[in-house]
Design a protein around this nucleic acid. Structure first.
Lengths: 143, 143
DNA sequence: ACAAATTATATTGTGCGCAATATAATATTG
DNA sequence: CAATATTATATTGCGCACAATATAATTTGT
């Protein structure tokens, strides 16, 4: 490959490992989540709700970097499963408020050890390296 | 949140920035790729073919960490678009060999400056940091 | 050589993920 | 205060992404 196209080599592009790692981490969680009937995206939605109890669709999208086209059907599935509630806000009828049900709250107990289990399988990274990776990813995410 | 559930806070989980950055990088490339009629995944397939000219579906999946369920329909779309060829191997009829057409080769010229453009917009990371991020992502990918 | 196991790809089904568009409610402006 | 603009969510359409299954070719074991 000529110098001119040097930057088009897969190994010279940081985009590819970002893309591949994003899918890989989802794949690492899936074996633990799917027995609970959850997808990874549903899991991160639950994490937000475990922390905040109630959020609007817009807030959820802001926190998770997801849009309504993803969230609306996902939240409807989670509502059908009995994990979340969806209701229009009284103050502003445009807003849909998402809340957590008892069943959704109960999943917290079942999920609490998953991060440690996944981490223990992914031990190619030292504690130090994981911290640095975390920091760099957030720098990227904000830039 | 009690100590017990500390690890379930979004901010304490490295999985989330990995997941979010994976989607973000695709989003950064999309404005440059979609005018060419390409998706990000099609772009990385082309990168492999620009480098190797011919690969099997299995090799492609190994390099890109994608399975046949993703690749087969994607390659068919790229074949319809005239960018790749698909043919059974003579030596082993189970194998599908994917090749690049002239039209596919011509896209290389149109894509060659995209990585630099995306990088220039994503300048929150220094050269040093980008290198370290690259290294850590590959460590994660291999672990 | 032939039955059984393995391998490579394809197919099916479900759930994201996002662009584009639509709809309805609220805010703004003349 | 009515017309216009903005905001929040929902809908539609398309392309991944992957688990599960199917199909066909090759390899292996006897």
């Amino acid at each position: 490959m000529s110098q001119k196209y040097e930057q088009l080599l897969l190994k010279n592009q940081i985009c590819f490992p970002l893309y591949a790692c994003g899918r890989k981490i989802v794949g690492r969680y899936t074996p633990y989540l799917s027995p609970l009937g959850l997808t990874y995206t549903q899991y991160v939605v639950l994490m937000v709700l475990w922390e905040h109890r109630e959020v609007t669709v817009g807030q959820l999208g802001g926190i998770l970097h997801l849009d309504a086209g993803t969230l609306t059907p996902l939240l409807k599935r989670m509502e059908s499963a009995g994990y979340v509630t969806r209701a229009r806000s009284k103050e502003d009828e445009r807003v849909t408020v998402v809340g957590i049900t008892e069943a959704g709250e109960a999943l917290k107990e079942k999920c609490k050890d998953i991060p440690a289990k996944v981490a223990s399988e992914t031990s190619a990274l030292s504690e130090e390296e994981a911290k640095e990776l975390y920091r760099l990813l957030y720098r990227f995410l904000e830039g």
